[in-house]
């Protein structure tokens, strides 16, 4: 049976030995998968995306620092509003995703390939809207309702961190991992999201007496930026080794 099928795979009219001359359709499908994987690997520019995200995260720190409205009360308690972060990230997010899409397409074109950035751009656009919308919703709610006396539940903090820019960066990296079929990026993103959502206090800072409020907010951002930067270097080194 296989031999009969194999006869069909003799090149018709011209010689062609670029794919292994096996008649087995299973082998042909496997070869097609290999070619697809090679193309996807050649389209990858993971390190560039991570580098842009790291740069945007570092650039946000002074905006948050100087744009933060802090009011300390005589009883020692302080209220703060991170307006600078809002004003920075709303224009920074679309610019950041546009820059990544542009660099991806340019690199792919230089390698003789097209790029698939549309789903990524759509996700970038959606996440850009989610952050200010969530901020607006929370601000509007608490302007009409009293702030609760009891500590807010843990899930609230996780949700709050997810809709913040650093959580949205994680969601976008998930989409990028799916687009690139990039298991290494997926593993990194899962670790990144765990760090941002469960470990680092992105929304209330390190509230130790050692830190001022501004510094307490800057440290988690600095950690996220360093993690993204190190990942960018790691993916670049891995990409160079592969080539």
């Amino acid at each position: 049976m296989l031999a009969q099928i194999g006869l069909l795979w003799k090149p018709i009219g011209m010689t062609a030995n670029s794919l292994p001359a096996a008649g087995d359709p299973r082998r042909l499908l496997s070869d097609m998968r290999t070619l697809s994987q090679r193309v996807r690997a050649d389209q990858r520019m993971t390190w560039v995306a991570l580098l842009v995200l790291a740069a945007a995260t570092f650039a946000a720190i002074p905006f948050d620092w100087f744009g933060m409205d802090v009011t300390c009360l005589p009883d020692g308690g302080c209220q703060f509003a991170r307006d600078g972060m809002l004003y920075y990230w709303i224009p920074a997010m679309p610019l950041m995703y546009a820059a990544i899409a542009f660099l991806y397409l340019r690199a792919a074109r230089a390698r003789g390939l097209g790029g698939r950035v549309l789903p990524y751009a759509i996700t970038g656009a959606v996440t850009t809207l989610v952050f200010p919308a969530a901020w607006l919703a929370v601000t509007t709610y608490f302007s009409n309702h009293p702030y609760p006396d009891q500590p807010l539940p843990y899930w609230w903090f996780v949700l709050d961190r997810l809709v913040m820019p650093w959580g949205m960066i994680g969601v976008t990296l998930l989409v990028l991992a799916w687009l690139e079929r990039n298991v290494a990026l997926l593993a990194f993103t899962v670790g990144y999201l765990a760090l941002v959502l469960l470990v680092l206090p992105m929304n209330y800072g390190f509230s130790s007496g050692f830190f001022s409020i501004r510094a307490a907010m800057a440290v988690p951002q600095l950690i996220v930026g360093v993690v993204l930067l190190l990942a960018a270097f790691g993916f670049r080194a891995a990409g160079r080794r592969r080539r």
Binding site: L8, W9, P11, I12, A16, S18, L19, A21, L28, D31, M32, L35, S36, R38, V39, R40, D42, Q43, A108, R111, G112, L113, G114, G115, R116
Partner: peptide, 26 residues
């Protein structure tokens, strides 16, 4: 149903758009 042409279609489908030189090398 020809190995090279199947390869061309596979690469082009995956890449959306592919340059002659890339196909030739792959």
């Amino acid at each position: 149903h020809q190995r090279v042409r199947l390869g061309i279609l596979t690469i082009t489908h995956e890449a959306r758009r592919v340059e002659f030189g890339y196909l030739r090398s792959q």
